[in-house]
Design a protein around this nucleic acid. Structure first.
Lengths: 227, 227
DNA sequence: CTGCATCACATTGTCGACAATTTAACTGGA
DNA sequence: TCCAGTTAAATTGTCGACAATGTGATGCAG
Protein backbone atom coordinates (compact mmCIF):
# COMPACT_ATOMS: atom_id res chain seq x y z
CA UNK A 1 0.00 0.00 0.00
CA UNK A 2 2.79 2.47 0.56
CA UNK A 3 6.07 1.86 -1.20
CA UNK A 4 7.60 -0.32 -3.86
CA UNK A 5 4.01 -1.33 -4.58
CA UNK A 6 2.88 2.22 -5.28
CA UNK A 7 0.44 3.95 -7.57
CA UNK A 8 0.54 7.75 -7.12
CA UNK A 9 0.50 9.84 -3.98
CA UNK A 10 -2.82 11.46 -4.71
CA UNK A 11 -4.40 12.38 -1.41
CA UNK A 12 -2.98 14.63 1.29
CA UNK A 13 -2.84 11.65 3.63
CA UNK A 14 -0.57 9.88 1.15
CA UNK A 15 1.86 12.77 0.95
CA UNK A 16 2.16 13.31 4.68
CA UNK A 17 2.52 9.55 5.15
CA UNK A 18 5.57 9.46 2.90
CA UNK A 19 7.14 12.41 4.71
CA UNK A 20 6.61 11.06 8.21
CA UNK A 21 7.70 7.60 7.11
CA UNK A 22 10.97 8.98 5.86
CA UNK A 23 11.45 11.10 8.97
CA UNK A 24 10.96 8.12 11.26
CA UNK A 25 13.10 5.73 9.23
CA UNK A 26 15.96 8.23 9.08
CA UNK A 27 15.65 9.01 12.78
CA UNK A 28 14.67 12.66 12.38
CA UNK A 29 11.80 11.79 14.70
CA UNK A 30 13.54 10.01 17.56
CA UNK A 31 12.61 6.42 18.47
CA UNK A 32 10.38 6.35 21.53
CA UNK A 33 9.28 9.97 21.13
CA UNK A 34 5.62 10.87 21.34
CA UNK A 35 3.63 11.70 18.23
CA UNK A 36 1.53 14.82 18.78
CA UNK A 37 -1.34 15.09 16.33
CA UNK A 38 -1.86 18.86 16.76
CA UNK A 39 1.86 19.51 16.36
CA UNK A 40 2.26 17.44 13.20
CA UNK A 41 -0.94 18.89 11.77
CA UNK A 42 0.49 22.38 12.14
CA UNK A 43 3.91 21.32 10.87
CA UNK A 44 2.53 19.84 7.66
CA UNK A 45 -0.26 22.40 7.39
CA UNK A 46 -3.26 20.11 7.20
CA UNK A 47 -6.10 19.00 9.44
CA UNK A 48 -6.01 16.05 11.77
CA UNK A 49 -8.25 13.87 9.57
CA UNK A 50 -5.70 12.95 6.88
CA UNK A 51 -3.02 12.92 9.55
CA UNK A 52 -4.85 10.22 11.48
CA UNK A 53 -5.23 8.23 8.28
CA UNK A 54 -1.45 8.42 7.89
CA UNK A 55 -0.91 7.38 11.50
CA UNK A 56 -3.12 4.33 10.99
CA UNK A 57 -0.88 3.27 8.12
CA UNK A 58 2.27 3.98 10.10
CA UNK A 59 1.01 1.63 12.79
CA UNK A 60 0.33 -0.93 10.10
CA UNK A 61 4.00 -0.99 9.09
CA UNK A 62 5.13 -1.10 12.73
CA UNK A 63 6.78 2.32 12.76
CA UNK A 64 4.57 3.64 15.57
CA UNK A 65 2.53 2.14 18.40
CA UNK A 66 -0.83 3.57 19.35
CA UNK A 67 -2.68 3.34 22.63
CA UNK A 68 -6.39 4.28 22.64
CA UNK A 69 -7.01 7.70 24.16
CA UNK A 70 -3.33 8.08 24.91
CA UNK A 71 -1.63 8.71 21.60
CA UNK A 72 1.15 7.24 19.53
CA UNK A 73 4.88 6.78 20.01
CA UNK A 74 7.65 5.99 17.56
CA UNK A 75 8.85 2.40 18.02
CA UNK A 76 12.07 1.80 19.89
CA UNK A 77 14.76 -0.32 18.30
CA UNK A 78 16.12 -3.23 20.30
CA UNK A 79 18.18 -6.35 19.81
CA UNK A 80 15.16 -8.50 20.69
CA UNK A 81 13.06 -6.64 18.11
CA UNK A 82 15.73 -7.06 15.46
CA UNK A 83 15.98 -10.79 16.11
CA UNK A 84 12.21 -11.24 16.00
CA UNK A 85 11.96 -9.26 12.79
CA UNK A 86 14.71 -11.15 11.04
CA UNK A 87 13.42 -14.53 12.17
CA UNK A 88 10.27 -13.62 10.29
CA UNK A 89 12.13 -12.26 7.29
CA UNK A 90 14.27 -15.37 6.95
CA UNK A 91 11.23 -17.61 6.85
CA UNK A 92 9.16 -15.35 4.61
CA UNK A 93 11.81 -14.59 2.02
CA UNK A 94 12.77 -18.25 2.08
CA UNK A 95 9.19 -19.04 1.16
CA UNK A 96 9.32 -16.34 -1.50
CA UNK A 97 12.31 -18.06 -3.05
CA UNK A 98 10.63 -21.45 -3.08
CA UNK A 99 7.56 -19.97 -4.77
CA UNK A 100 9.65 -17.86 -7.14
CA UNK A 101 11.45 -20.98 -8.33
CA UNK A 102 8.05 -22.34 -9.16
CA UNK A 103 6.30 -19.31 -10.60
CA UNK A 104 8.83 -16.93 -12.18
CA UNK A 105 9.01 -16.98 -15.94
CA UNK A 106 12.34 -17.53 -17.68
CA UNK A 107 12.18 -13.95 -18.90
CA UNK A 108 11.73 -12.59 -15.38
CA UNK A 109 14.66 -14.64 -14.12
CA UNK A 110 16.90 -13.48 -16.97
CA UNK A 111 15.95 -9.91 -16.18
CA UNK A 112 17.09 -10.30 -12.56
CA UNK A 113 20.38 -11.87 -13.64
CA UNK A 114 20.96 -9.01 -16.01
CA UNK A 115 20.11 -6.61 -13.20
CA UNK A 116 22.74 -8.15 -10.95
CA UNK A 117 25.50 -7.77 -13.55
CA UNK A 118 24.43 -4.20 -14.04
CA UNK A 119 24.55 -3.49 -10.30
CA UNK A 120 27.94 -5.14 -10.05
CA UNK A 121 29.47 -2.87 -12.66
CA UNK A 122 27.97 0.35 -11.30
CA UNK A 123 29.01 -0.70 -7.83
CA UNK A 124 32.64 -1.12 -8.97
CA UNK A 125 32.61 2.38 -10.39
CA UNK A 126 30.96 4.03 -7.41
CA UNK A 127 33.11 2.31 -4.84
CA UNK A 128 31.83 2.75 -1.31
CA UNK A 129 28.69 4.68 -2.06
CA UNK A 130 26.35 2.81 0.18
CA UNK A 131 23.24 4.25 -1.45
CA UNK A 132 23.71 2.29 -4.64
CA UNK A 133 24.50 -0.79 -2.64
CA UNK A 134 21.25 -0.58 -0.75
CA UNK A 135 19.21 0.30 -3.82
CA UNK A 136 20.57 -2.76 -5.57
CA UNK A 137 19.94 -4.99 -2.58
CA UNK A 138 16.39 -3.77 -2.19
CA UNK A 139 15.77 -4.18 -5.90
CA UNK A 140 16.96 -7.78 -5.90
CA UNK A 141 14.89 -8.86 -2.93
CA UNK A 142 11.93 -6.96 -4.33
CA UNK A 143 12.02 -8.85 -7.62
CA UNK A 144 12.25 -12.23 -5.96
CA UNK A 145 9.34 -11.41 -3.67
CA UNK A 146 7.20 -10.31 -6.60
CA UNK A 147 8.26 -13.50 -8.36
CA UNK A 148 6.51 -15.55 -5.69
CA UNK A 149 3.20 -14.32 -7.16
CA UNK A 150 1.65 -14.64 -3.69
CA UNK A 151 -0.35 -11.46 -2.97
CA UNK A 152 -0.37 -11.90 0.83
CA UNK A 153 3.37 -12.49 0.91
CA UNK A 154 4.07 -9.57 -1.39
CA UNK A 155 1.95 -7.22 0.67
CA UNK A 156 3.60 -8.38 3.86
CA UNK A 157 7.21 -8.00 2.78
CA UNK A 158 6.94 -4.99 0.48
CA UNK A 159 4.45 -2.92 2.45
CA UNK A 160 4.29 -3.98 6.08
CA UNK A 161 7.81 -5.06 6.95
CA UNK A 162 9.85 -3.07 4.43
CA UNK A 163 10.08 0.17 6.39
CA UNK A 164 10.88 -1.23 9.82
CA UNK A 165 13.61 -3.38 8.28
CA UNK A 166 14.97 -0.31 6.55
CA UNK A 167 14.78 1.66 9.81
CA UNK A 168 17.09 -0.83 11.51
CA UNK A 169 19.57 -0.71 8.65
CA UNK A 170 19.57 3.05 8.31
CA UNK A 171 19.77 3.94 11.97
CA UNK A 172 22.48 1.41 12.68
CA UNK A 173 24.54 2.93 9.87
CA UNK A 174 24.76 -0.06 7.58
CA UNK A 175 27.53 0.46 5.05
CA UNK A 176 29.35 -2.65 6.11
CA UNK A 177 32.11 -4.65 4.45
CA UNK A 178 29.50 -7.11 3.25
CA UNK A 179 29.12 -5.43 -0.13
CA UNK A 180 30.77 -7.85 -2.54
CA UNK A 181 29.78 -10.93 -0.57
CA UNK A 182 26.13 -9.97 -0.83
CA UNK A 183 26.43 -9.78 -4.60
CA UNK A 184 27.78 -13.32 -4.75
CA UNK A 185 24.98 -14.56 -2.54
CA UNK A 186 22.40 -12.87 -4.75
CA UNK A 187 23.95 -14.56 -7.76
CA UNK A 188 23.77 -17.97 -6.11
CA UNK A 189 20.13 -17.47 -5.15
CA UNK A 190 18.93 -16.43 -8.59
CA UNK A 191 20.88 -19.31 -10.11
CA UNK A 192 19.09 -21.75 -7.84
CA UNK A 193 15.80 -20.21 -8.91
CA UNK A 194 16.84 -20.46 -12.55
CA UNK A 195 17.49 -24.17 -11.99
CA UNK A 196 14.01 -24.43 -10.47
CA UNK A 197 15.60 -25.64 -7.26
CA UNK A 198 13.28 -24.01 -4.76
CA UNK A 199 14.64 -25.88 -1.79
CA UNK A 200 18.19 -24.66 -2.40
CA UNK A 201 17.05 -21.11 -3.12
CA UNK A 202 15.12 -21.18 0.17
CA UNK A 203 18.20 -22.34 2.09
CA UNK A 204 20.52 -19.80 0.46
CA UNK A 205 18.14 -16.93 1.12
CA UNK A 206 17.81 -17.86 4.78
CA UNK A 207 21.59 -17.93 5.12
CA UNK A 208 21.86 -14.65 3.26
CA UNK A 209 19.44 -12.89 5.58
CA UNK A 210 20.90 -14.61 8.62
CA UNK A 211 24.34 -13.23 7.70
CA UNK A 212 22.80 -9.81 7.20
CA UNK A 213 21.20 -9.99 10.63
CA UNK A 214 24.43 -10.93 12.39
CA UNK A 215 26.11 -8.09 10.53
CA UNK A 216 23.58 -5.59 11.82
CA UNK A 217 23.54 -7.07 15.29
CA UNK A 218 27.19 -6.18 15.82
CA UNK A 219 26.42 -2.51 15.19
CA UNK A 220 24.31 -2.34 18.33
CA UNK A 221 27.45 -2.43 20.43
CA UNK A 222 29.52 -0.01 18.40
CA UNK A 223 30.28 3.45 19.78
CA UNK A 224 28.95 5.58 16.93
CA UNK A 225 25.41 4.55 17.68
CA UNK A 226 23.68 5.91 20.72
CA UNK A 227 20.88 3.76 22.06
CA UNK B 1 -5.10 -5.16 17.64
CA UNK B 2 -8.55 -6.66 17.22
CA UNK B 3 -9.11 -10.18 18.39
CA UNK B 4 -7.56 -12.85 20.55
CA UNK B 5 -5.04 -10.14 21.44
CA UNK B 6 -7.66 -7.78 22.82
CA UNK B 7 -7.92 -5.23 25.60
CA UNK B 8 -11.43 -3.70 25.78
CA UNK B 9 -13.65 -2.31 23.04
CA UNK B 10 -13.62 1.23 24.37
CA UNK B 11 -14.09 3.57 21.45
CA UNK B 12 -16.99 3.68 19.03
CA UNK B 13 -14.63 2.69 16.24
CA UNK B 14 -13.77 -0.48 18.15
CA UNK B 15 -17.40 -1.49 18.58
CA UNK B 16 -18.38 -0.94 14.97
CA UNK B 17 -15.23 -2.73 13.86
CA UNK B 18 -16.25 -5.87 15.73
CA UNK B 19 -19.75 -5.77 14.27
CA UNK B 20 -18.67 -5.28 10.68
CA UNK B 21 -15.92 -7.85 11.08
CA UNK B 22 -18.44 -10.43 12.20
CA UNK B 23 -20.87 -9.47 9.44
CA UNK B 24 -18.22 -9.89 6.76
CA UNK B 25 -16.78 -13.12 8.14
CA UNK B 26 -20.24 -14.68 8.38
CA UNK B 27 -21.17 -13.48 4.91
CA UNK B 28 -24.00 -11.16 6.00
CA UNK B 29 -22.25 -8.57 3.89
CA UNK B 30 -21.70 -10.39 0.62
CA UNK B 31 -18.17 -10.89 -0.78
CA UNK B 32 -17.44 -8.41 -3.56
CA UNK B 33 -20.18 -6.01 -2.47
CA UNK B 34 -19.46 -2.32 -2.13
CA UNK B 35 -19.01 -0.69 1.26
CA UNK B 36 -20.93 2.56 1.45
CA UNK B 37 -19.70 4.86 4.21
CA UNK B 38 -22.89 6.94 4.47
CA UNK B 39 -25.04 3.82 4.57
CA UNK B 40 -23.02 2.10 7.29
CA UNK B 41 -22.79 5.33 9.25
CA UNK B 42 -26.57 5.54 9.31
CA UNK B 43 -26.97 1.84 10.02
CA UNK B 44 -24.70 1.94 13.07
CA UNK B 45 -25.78 5.44 14.03
CA UNK B 46 -22.41 7.16 14.19
CA UNK B 47 -20.42 9.61 12.11
CA UNK B 48 -18.05 8.70 9.32
CA UNK B 49 -14.92 9.45 11.36
CA UNK B 50 -14.91 6.34 13.58
CA UNK B 51 -16.31 4.36 10.67
CA UNK B 52 -13.32 5.20 8.52
CA UNK B 53 -11.04 4.19 11.37
CA UNK B 54 -12.80 0.83 11.41
CA UNK B 55 -12.48 0.50 7.63
CA UNK B 56 -8.73 1.12 7.87
CA UNK B 57 -8.44 -1.78 10.27
CA UNK B 58 -10.65 -4.00 8.11
CA UNK B 59 -8.27 -3.39 5.23
CA UNK B 60 -5.41 -4.28 7.53
CA UNK B 61 -6.83 -7.75 8.12
CA UNK B 62 -7.59 -8.23 4.42
CA UNK B 63 -11.38 -8.28 4.77
CA UNK B 64 -11.91 -5.29 2.46
CA UNK B 65 -9.98 -3.62 -0.35
CA UNK B 66 -9.91 0.14 -0.72
CA UNK B 67 -9.25 2.25 -3.79
CA UNK B 68 -8.48 5.97 -3.25
CA UNK B 69 -11.43 8.18 -4.10
CA UNK B 70 -13.45 5.19 -5.19
CA UNK B 71 -14.41 3.36 -2.02
CA UNK B 72 -14.07 -0.08 -0.49
CA UNK B 73 -15.32 -3.55 -1.42
CA UNK B 74 -15.54 -6.76 0.58
CA UNK B 75 -12.90 -9.24 -0.59
CA UNK B 76 -13.94 -12.07 -2.87
CA UNK B 77 -13.01 -15.61 -1.92
CA UNK B 78 -11.21 -17.70 -4.51
CA UNK B 79 -9.23 -20.91 -4.75
CA UNK B 80 -6.11 -18.94 -5.65
CA UNK B 81 -6.59 -16.73 -2.59
CA UNK B 82 -7.09 -19.72 -0.34
CA UNK B 83 -3.93 -21.38 -1.62
CA UNK B 84 -1.88 -18.20 -1.19
CA UNK B 85 -3.22 -17.69 2.31
CA UNK B 86 -2.53 -21.23 3.44
CA UNK B 87 0.95 -21.26 1.92
CA UNK B 88 1.69 -18.37 4.22
CA UNK B 89 -0.01 -19.98 7.20
CA UNK B 90 1.89 -23.22 6.81
CA UNK B 91 5.21 -21.43 6.84
CA UNK B 92 4.31 -19.02 9.63
CA UNK B 93 2.77 -21.52 12.02
CA UNK B 94 5.64 -23.88 11.26
CA UNK B 95 7.98 -21.13 12.40
CA UNK B 96 5.78 -20.57 15.44
CA UNK B 97 6.20 -24.23 16.38
CA UNK B 98 9.97 -24.11 16.01
CA UNK B 99 10.13 -21.02 18.23
CA UNK B 100 7.60 -22.42 20.69
CA UNK B 101 9.76 -25.52 21.15
CA UNK B 102 12.53 -23.15 22.10
CA UNK B 103 10.71 -20.58 24.21
CA UNK B 104 7.65 -22.13 25.87
CA UNK B 105 8.00 -22.94 29.54
CA UNK B 106 7.27 -26.44 30.81
CA UNK B 107 4.25 -25.02 32.61
CA UNK B 108 2.84 -23.49 29.43
CA UNK B 109 3.31 -26.76 27.56
CA UNK B 110 1.61 -28.74 30.30
CA UNK B 111 -1.28 -26.32 30.20
CA UNK B 112 -1.80 -26.91 26.48
CA UNK B 113 -1.67 -30.67 26.93
CA UNK B 114 -4.25 -30.41 29.67
CA UNK B 115 -6.34 -28.21 27.40
CA UNK B 116 -6.32 -30.82 24.64
CA UNK B 117 -7.56 -33.58 26.98
CA UNK B 118 -10.26 -31.24 28.16
CA UNK B 119 -11.34 -30.45 24.61
CA UNK B 120 -11.33 -34.12 23.71
CA UNK B 121 -13.76 -35.00 26.49
CA UNK B 122 -16.17 -32.13 25.85
CA UNK B 123 -16.05 -32.95 22.15
CA UNK B 124 -17.07 -36.53 22.82
CA UNK B 125 -20.07 -35.31 24.78
CA UNK B 126 -21.16 -32.69 22.30
CA UNK B 127 -20.80 -34.89 19.25
CA UNK B 128 -21.00 -32.99 16.01
CA UNK B 129 -21.33 -29.51 17.41
CA UNK B 130 -18.85 -27.77 15.17
CA UNK B 131 -18.66 -24.70 17.34
CA UNK B 132 -16.77 -26.44 20.09
CA UNK B 133 -14.55 -28.06 17.53
CA UNK B 134 -13.56 -24.74 16.06
CA UNK B 135 -13.16 -23.06 19.43
CA UNK B 136 -10.80 -25.81 20.48
CA UNK B 137 -8.86 -25.66 17.24
CA UNK B 138 -8.46 -21.90 17.46
CA UNK B 139 -7.45 -22.13 21.09
CA UNK B 140 -4.71 -24.67 20.38
CA UNK B 141 -3.18 -22.74 17.49
CA UNK B 142 -3.46 -19.55 19.50
CA UNK B 143 -1.45 -20.95 22.40
CA UNK B 144 1.32 -22.26 20.18
CA UNK B 145 1.57 -18.94 18.39
CA UNK B 146 1.82 -17.05 21.67
CA UNK B 147 4.42 -19.59 22.75
CA UNK B 148 6.72 -18.43 19.98
CA UNK B 149 7.20 -15.20 21.96
CA UNK B 150 7.77 -13.36 18.67
CA UNK B 151 5.69 -10.14 18.69
CA UNK B 152 5.69 -9.67 14.90
CA UNK B 153 4.62 -13.25 14.33
CA UNK B 154 1.94 -13.07 16.99
CA UNK B 155 0.50 -9.86 15.58
CA UNK B 156 0.51 -11.29 12.08
CA UNK B 157 -1.26 -14.55 12.84
CA UNK B 158 -3.61 -13.45 15.61
CA UNK B 159 -4.62 -10.04 14.27
CA UNK B 160 -3.97 -9.74 10.55
CA UNK B 161 -4.60 -13.20 9.16
CA UNK B 162 -7.00 -14.62 11.75
CA UNK B 163 -10.21 -13.19 10.33
CA UNK B 164 -9.65 -13.91 6.66
CA UNK B 165 -8.74 -17.50 7.54
CA UNK B 166 -11.90 -17.74 9.59
CA UNK B 167 -13.92 -16.23 6.73
CA UNK B 168 -12.85 -19.04 4.41
CA UNK B 169 -13.70 -21.67 6.99
CA UNK B 170 -17.08 -20.20 7.92
CA UNK B 171 -18.33 -19.40 4.45
CA UNK B 172 -17.29 -22.78 3.07
CA UNK B 173 -19.22 -24.47 5.85
CA UNK B 174 -16.42 -26.26 7.61
CA UNK B 175 -17.72 -28.94 9.91
CA UNK B 176 -15.85 -31.69 8.14
CA UNK B 177 -15.09 -35.28 9.13
CA UNK B 178 -11.64 -34.14 10.18
CA UNK B 179 -12.63 -33.67 13.81
CA UNK B 180 -10.93 -36.53 15.59
CA UNK B 181 -7.95 -36.59 13.27
CA UNK B 182 -7.21 -32.96 14.08
CA UNK B 183 -7.10 -33.77 17.77
CA UNK B 184 -4.49 -36.45 17.19
CA UNK B 185 -2.41 -34.08 15.11
CA UNK B 186 -2.59 -31.44 17.83
CA UNK B 187 -1.41 -34.02 20.33
CA UNK B 188 1.56 -34.98 18.17
CA UNK B 189 2.55 -31.35 17.71
CA UNK B 190 2.49 -30.42 21.39
CA UNK B 191 4.41 -33.60 22.20
CA UNK B 192 7.13 -32.61 19.75
CA UNK B 193 7.27 -29.20 21.39
CA UNK B 194 7.41 -30.85 24.82
CA UNK B 195 10.41 -32.85 23.59
CA UNK B 196 11.98 -29.58 22.41
CA UNK B 197 12.05 -30.98 18.88
CA UNK B 198 11.33 -27.80 16.96
CA UNK B 199 12.11 -29.31 13.60
CA UNK B 200 9.54 -32.09 14.01
CA UNK B 201 6.93 -29.73 15.43
CA UNK B 202 7.47 -27.49 12.40
CA UNK B 203 7.00 -30.40 10.01
CA UNK B 204 3.90 -31.71 11.77
CA UNK B 205 2.26 -28.29 11.87
CA UNK B 206 2.85 -27.77 8.15
CA UNK B 207 1.27 -31.12 7.41
CA UNK B 208 -1.61 -30.36 9.74
CA UNK B 209 -2.39 -27.07 8.01
CA UNK B 210 -1.81 -28.58 4.60
CA UNK B 211 -4.41 -31.24 5.37
CA UNK B 212 -6.79 -28.56 6.58
CA UNK B 213 -6.30 -26.63 3.36
CA UNK B 214 -7.03 -29.62 1.14
CA UNK B 215 -10.09 -30.29 3.25
CA UNK B 216 -11.40 -26.77 2.67
CA UNK B 217 -10.41 -26.77 -0.99
CA UNK B 218 -12.82 -29.59 -1.74
CA UNK B 219 -15.73 -27.51 -0.43
CA UNK B 220 -15.31 -25.03 -3.27
CA UNK B 221 -16.80 -27.57 -5.67
CA UNK B 222 -19.61 -28.84 -3.48
CA UNK B 223 -23.19 -27.89 -4.31
CA UNK B 224 -24.21 -26.39 -0.98
CA UNK B 225 -21.89 -23.46 -1.51
CA UNK B 226 -22.74 -20.82 -4.08
CA UNK B 227 -19.79 -18.91 -5.45
C1' DC C 1 -27.62 3.68 -33.91
C1' DT C 2 -23.09 4.44 -31.95
C1' DG C 3 -19.63 7.06 -29.70
C1' DC C 4 -18.13 10.96 -27.16
C1' DA C 5 -18.66 15.15 -24.46
C1' DT C 6 -21.24 17.35 -20.86
C1' DC C 7 -23.63 17.64 -16.81
C1' DA C 8 -25.81 16.31 -12.41
C1' DC C 9 -25.52 13.20 -8.69
C1' DA C 10 -23.37 10.35 -5.27
C1' DT C 11 -19.29 9.18 -2.69
C1' DT C 12 -14.90 10.01 -0.74
C1' DG C 13 -11.42 13.33 1.22
C1' DT C 14 -10.75 17.24 4.22
C1' DC C 15 -11.81 20.76 7.50
C1' DG C 16 -12.81 23.18 12.01
C1' DA C 17 -15.23 22.72 16.31
C1' DC C 18 -17.00 20.11 20.23
C1' DA C 19 -17.08 16.08 23.60
C1' DA C 20 -14.69 12.58 26.23
C1' DT C 21 -10.64 10.97 28.27
C1' DT C 22 -6.01 11.18 29.91
C1' DT C 23 -2.14 13.58 31.93
C1' DA C 24 -0.11 16.97 35.06
C1' DA C 25 -0.10 20.19 38.27
C1' DC C 26 -1.79 21.76 42.46
C1' DT C 27 -3.68 21.63 46.94
C1' DG C 28 -4.35 19.77 51.34
C1' DG C 29 -3.49 16.52 54.88
C1' DA C 30 -0.77 12.88 57.32
C1' DT D 1 8.53 15.44 52.94
C1' DC D 2 5.45 12.40 50.81
C1' DC D 3 1.11 10.77 49.29
C1' DA D 4 -3.78 11.08 47.89
C1' DG D 5 -7.57 13.62 45.93
C1' DT D 6 -9.01 17.25 43.07
C1' DT D 7 -8.81 20.20 39.33
C1' DA D 8 -7.16 22.37 35.04
C1' DA D 9 -4.81 21.85 30.71
C1' DA D 10 -3.78 19.26 26.80
C1' DT D 11 -4.72 15.44 23.79
C1' DT D 12 -7.54 12.16 21.52
C1' DG D 13 -12.21 10.70 19.80
C1' DT D 14 -16.29 12.20 17.40
C1' DC D 15 -19.31 15.12 14.85
C1' DG D 16 -21.54 17.74 10.92
C1' DA D 17 -20.54 20.45 6.84
C1' DC D 18 -17.82 21.60 2.76
C1' DA D 19 -14.56 20.55 -1.14
C1' DA D 20 -12.71 17.35 -4.50
C1' DT D 21 -13.12 13.39 -7.06
C1' DG D 22 -15.47 9.61 -9.38
C1' DT D 23 -19.85 7.70 -11.55
C1' DG D 24 -23.71 7.39 -14.30
C1' DA D 25 -27.18 9.59 -17.15
C1' DT D 26 -28.32 12.66 -20.75
C1' DG D 27 -27.92 14.75 -25.08
C1' DC D 28 -25.59 15.88 -29.19
C1' DA D 29 -22.66 14.95 -33.33
C1' DG D 30 -21.17 11.72 -36.58
Amino acid sequence: MQSPTWKDPITAADRVLLEIQRAIVEGQIAPGSKISEPELAKRFDLSRAPLREALARLERCHLIERIPNAGARVVKLSVAGLVSLYQLRETLEGLACRLAAEHMTDAEIAQVQQLLDQHLSTQRVREGESYYQEAGDVDFHYRVILGSKNPYLINLLCDELYFIVRMYRVQLGMNGPRVSRAFDEHKAIINAIANRDGELADLLMRRHIGASRRNIETHFKQPHFKQ
